[in-house]
Design a protein around this nucleic acid. Structure first.
Lengths: 373, 373
DNA sequence: TCCAGTTCGGGAACCGGTTGCCACAAGTGT
DNA sequence: ACACTTGTGGCAACCGGTTCCCGAACTGGA
């Protein structure tokens, strides 16, 4: 069965096919398509017709190898399913295409091996920049590995961008864009403390995860700023998923752990926690207060609407590609720190039966002393 | 200026650089790296050392052009920010890398022009398959355009996959994977009707969007199966966002529109609607019942947990790449239809002050007569 | 010692484009 | 009629790899 009068199936046409059909040389076809070189109208017409008839599109890889391709940019995240990073992916993607770049997205599911592999692939693809987002275990091995990657990317004319990850040793060719986990958590926890809460359950992330660590540091610092030390039993590690939040609250409740407020490291975690609280017959915020982190769109649809910390993820994504792509080769390494702010909704109340010490507590995102640079 | 001194920034090394450093020819380096050809141990060692010292990685584009590259696969969606498609992206991504493919993700923000442009780019990249997901306006022009794309993709040995989009004319080389919008909506709406609801507000999508249309058809069919015709004022068009759901409910309420249940075309819309209902002092499900569609993870954290239709998005994504990549060139066109099912939670109650006609109403995902093929 | 068989490695063509350089034709001024 | 532009398009080198083909060196057996 003939599929189509011209062109066997699976046989893409090359520039030489077009040239032959138009009765010119490949150079001429290339020049017509590029549009920069003087070509007579008659020739141009013939070439264009051949292009149309063959449905020809120049091979992007071949162009790239010849040095005239569309530059590419890679974006690596843990899990594209999480709303916050999805927003960031969106920002990255939009800005990349605005700047005429192709954008490759890869989610690693938290698998370091996979991450490494993908970065190597991107280096092979000669990506203009590789953007890594999300916390990781900040081990010595991690730093060594990242430094190596940064170096080899740089020596290939590319650029490593770390988003929401700890910076590497100064001098390493890397762009770092952080959002302030510690200050946000500090402000949020201070808000809780100002409402009289003293036993605040902290639903953290994986112990080694830097994002989780930053938020936990804020939680701790806010307590210590008031001269208090939180019960270490109140800090529960886990995943950044709703199920994890749900599970941890159920366990805490069944173990008889006492707390008047819950501070979840993530809105997703908070969502699961909220449901577990409800299921236990507790009402928020009357019985227990609850706060999250990230300010995903959904946060305001929880019942009650969730008090949380707003992180400008989409802007973060845009910024990442802008600074990575817009830099001059010998510019100093950028290190940006984006501010966050608490958005107060209805999931926090004063602890029952206790006077609120400071009813007009200021809510801000000031870093505690010794904050990040 | 000399071309390179192996340490200059921005000068990636080529296979010839490695060859020179190892004192062999480029062919040998290629063979060592490929690992398929017999090479003496001494030579291999020297080559590997040179590779390491130069931190060399073969250019993937050059390999691709020579016919030994990593195949690529493209995934195009409306908005990566929406939870359901994000899950699908996840499925696509996982399956693609499992099958050794690179995966390009692009979100078009609903811009047809952008979509077209991206598909063309993918054709230039010689992507093995292009997966389009999400509803669109099903116009004659759309079909013509898609058919053309399908043809030119096919003639280049690639494959167009439509996910959750209407099929094209038979004979067009395209793989279609649909999930059953109509049946799901039918079952969901039947569930509502069985609870005695007669005025069900339908929060749809953009009028031309096929996903929205499918769900609306289910809504209509369920009514008609009981010999009823829903008030057309109860069908409100809009976006698939929480804000749109919120806005529409607020307006409906302020206009004094009467309804005992809300059927949102999307869980996101339902979330916004729920909040608007709450804000108006209405409680769900006592005052008004509410259902969504998609079963995003968040749905069970709404208050009350949302009754909705489960769509296996991640599975859908995996399936899409599996069938697209696993097909033999001359196989007939696949057209899969994935089933959905209602998941009953607590957001639906019998209409107040009315006897429930059929308390043991079966909840299933049977298609209405004349359903999809 | 000579020859066949292996093992190993280089030269060159090729993948599908781009582009510098040059040749040829037509047009122009004197 | 001649030299000089100017417009046009082809040849060939190049981008960075892979691989076919062939020859050199080394091996072992007779």
């Amino acid at each position: 069965m003939t599929r189509k009068s011209h062109g066997d199936i699976g046989n893409r046409s090359t520039i030489r096919d077009v040239a032959a059909r138009a009765g010119v040389s490949a150079s001429t076809v290339s020049r017509v398509l590029a549009g920069d070189y003087p070509v007579s109208t008659a020739t141009r017409t013939r070439v264009m017709r051949a292009v149309r008839e063959l449905d020809y599109v120049a091979d992007a890889r071949a162009k790239a190898i010849a040095g005239v391709g569309t530059p590419t940019l890679a974006f690596v995240l843990d899990d594209i399913t999480g709303p916050s990073f999805a927003h960031m992916a969106h920002g990255v993607e939009r800005e990349a295409t605005r700047l005429g770049h192709l954008c490759l997205v890869c989610s690693t599911d938290g698998d370091t091996e996979h991450e490494l592999e993908f970065i190597e692939t991107m280096r092979a693809q000669r990506a203009a920049a590789v953007i890594l987002v999300g916390g990781t275990a900040d081990t010595a091995e991690y730093r060594a590995r990242m430094s190596r990657i940064a170096d080899s990317l740089a020596s290939a004319g590319s650029r490593l961008v770390l988003c929401g990850r700890p910076p590497l040793d100064p001098g390493t060719p890397v762009t770092v864009i952080e959002y302030d986990n510690e200050s946000g958590a500090y402000a949020l926890c201070a808000h809780l403390l100002a409402q009289g809460h003293r036993r605040i359950l902290f639903l953290g992330g994986k112990p080694a995860n830097t994002t989780a660590q930053g938020r936990e540091r804020g939680y701790l610092a806010a307590h210590r700023a008031r001269g208090e030390e939180p019960d270490s039993q109140l800090r529960l590690a886990g995943d950044f998923t709703r199920d994890s939040g749900h599970r941890r609250i159920r366990q805490a409740l069944s173990q008889g752990l006492e707390f008047t407020a819950v501070m979840a490291a993530t809105d997703m975690v908070a969502a699961g926690a909220l449901t577990a609280l409800h299921e236990a017959g507790l009402t928020v915020p009357d019985d227990v207060s609850l706060v999250g982190y990230d300010d995903i769109p959904f946060a305001r649809d929880l019942h009650p609407p969730l008090t949380t910390v707003h992180v400008p993820y989409e802007e973060l994504g845009r910024l990442a590609v802008r600074t990575a792509l817009g830099r001059t080769p010998d510019a100093p390494n950028e290190h940006l720190l984006l501010g966050t702010h608490v958005v107060v909704r209805d999931s926090v109340a004063a602890v029952p039966g206790q006077l609120v010490p400071d009813a007009s507590a200021r809510v801000s995102s000031q870093a505690p002393a010794g904050g990040l640079t």
